[in-house]
Simulated scan of single mutants.
Amino acid sequence: MPSSAPSAVTRSALVILAVIACGVVLYVLRDIFTPLALAIFLAVMIDGLARLLLRRAPFLPRAAAAPAAIVLSIAVFAGAAVLIAENAADFVVQIAAYGPRLNGLMEQAAGLLGVQAPQSLEQLIRQLNPAQYLSQVGGALQGFASSAVFVLIYLGFILASRRGFERKIVGLFPDRHERREAVAAFHRIRDGVEQYLWVQTVTGVMIAVASWIAMALVGLDNALFWALLIFIASYIPIIGGIVGVAAPPIFALLQFDSLWPAAILAAVLQGVQFVVGNIIQPRMQGESLNMDPVVILLSLALWGAIWGLPGMFLSTPIAVMAMVILAQFDGTRWIAILLSDDGEPVRAKDADFPTAAPPPEAAPQDFESGASL
């Protein structure tokens, strides 16, 4: 009598079809899922900041840690937005003044290459007719504002419902051993994402400060504006580093008559990126992230294609979450091994939250206070 169980090929085909279907759904409903994903990302940041405040400021009451983290996060984001908005106005004005210089550079480049000189910047602008794109730009700004509102709404509901997570875990996993495994997986995901955020933030500050010093010494206009953009771009793997190295020297070519400021700036920024990216960041990151660099690149391309710029920001945290979740099941553990850097998706350091059956007198720990579930 033939077996009714599906074959390995059938199961693999079903998994592939399910992944494709999920990708299509995520793309079609990206306007809904993107704000939710960003809100979850911000909630993890606030939760990690709250626990950091409790460790660094033991005098702070536990009930005040989360509100303090929320206020501090809002203050940081608002301050960065104000600085960018103030400097962006000057930046736009100076770009208009760079027109003659850009025309001269294009003529010099055409002469060196032996090709016909392109049209002037003014002629190109007239042909492009930017007025017809103003409505599209306005719609994009309106969409960004509405997305930010949705992110804040989602974030508020997530923070308000976080106390119910503990009871939901108890209801979903009545067995203590299964519950302990679920909590262990949650902690691994949370710790991986928080470690990634911590490393990217600290190294981003290092790169931004060093770049600001170099740009200020050279005399580049809007050095603070560029430093803020470099810091924000540092959260995007690979692309952020390219933008941080290439953009300021290009504008230095427009600002200065000599090529030396741009050359010096390019060399210094490249050196800063190399030292931080290849020496400091691996030492800080250690073995906590444990993601294959190829997987990080593919995740960046995939989530960038599905969700655009927000997907690029979230690509690495999503890859970390996927690796930890896939490692929990025997049927998908091989995928987690391929995603990991050294073939160990679950490290020995995770013994702080063991997956083995706990002794009878032991009780699992909740997500926040450490009280028994």
Results as ranks from 00 to 15, higher is better:
Pro2Ile: 12
Ala5Thr: 10
Val9Asn: 11
Thr10Val: 09
Ile20Tyr: 01
Gly23Leu: 01
Val24Lys: 00
Tyr27Val: 05
Thr34Met: 06
Pro35Lys: 02
Leu36Phe: 03
Ala37Glu: 04
Ala39Tyr: 05
Ala39Glu: 04
Val44Phe: 12
Asp47Phe: 09
Ala50Arg: 01
Arg51Phe: 13
Leu52Glu: 09
Arg56Cys: 10
Ala57Ser: 13
Ala57Arg: 15
Ala64Glu: 08
Ala65Gln: 03
Pro67Ile: 01
Ala69Asn: 05
Leu72Ile: 09
Phe77Arg: 14
Phe77Ser: 09
Gly79Thr: 07
Ala85Ile: 08
Ala85Ser: 15
Ala88His: 12
Phe91Gly: 11
Ala97Ser: 13
Met106Val: 12
Gly111Ile: 14
Gly114Phe: 10
Gly114Gln: 05
Val115Asn: 04
Val115Phe: 08
Ala117Leu: 09
Pro118Ser: 10
Pro118Tyr: 07
Gln119Pro: 07
Ser120His: 08
Ile125Gln: 14
Gln127Val: 12
Gln127Arg: 13
Pro130Gln: 11
Val137Pro: 09
Gly139Pro: 08
Gly139Thr: 13
Leu141Tyr: 11
Gln142Asp: 12
Tyr154Ala: 11
Ile158Met: 03
Arg162Gln: 11
Glu166Val: 12
Leu172Ile: 13
Arg176Ser: 02
His177Lys: 07
Ala182Glu: 09
Ile189Ala: 07
Ile189Leu: 14
Asp191His: 08
Asp191Phe: 09
Val193Tyr: 03
Leu197His: 03
Val202Gly: 08
Val205Arg: 00
Val205Glu: 01
Ala210Glu: 07
Ala214Gly: 05
Ala223Trp: 03
Trp226Ser: 04
Trp226Ala: 05
Trp226Leu: 04
Leu228Glu: 10
Leu229Ile: 13
Ile230Tyr: 02
Ile230Phe: 00
Phe231Gln: 05
Ala233Phe: 07
Tyr235Phe: 14
Ile238Glu: 07
Gly240Phe: 03
Gly244Gln: 01
Ala246Met: 07
Ile250Gln: 03
Leu253Ala: 02
Leu253Cys: 04
Ala262Glu: 01
Ala263Ile: 03
Ala263Thr: 02
Ala267Asn: 05
Val268Thr: 05
Val272Pro: 02
Gly277Asp: 01
Met284Gly: 03
Asn290Arg: 01
Ser299Asn: 05
Ala301Ser: 05
Trp303Asp: 06
Met312His: 06
Met312Asn: 06
Ser315Asp: 08
Ala319Met: 02
Met321Gln: 10
Ala322Arg: 04
Val324Thr: 09
Leu326Lys: 08
Ala327Cys: 01
Arg333Asn: 10
Leu338Asn: 12
Asp341Glu: 15
Asp341Ala: 15
Val346Met: 04
Ala348Asp: 12
Asp350Trp: 12
Asp350Pro: 02
Asp352Tyr: 12
Thr355Val: 13
Ala362Asp: 07
Ala363Lys: 12
Gln365Ser: 14
Gln365Ile: 11
Ser372Arg: 10
Leu373Gln: 13
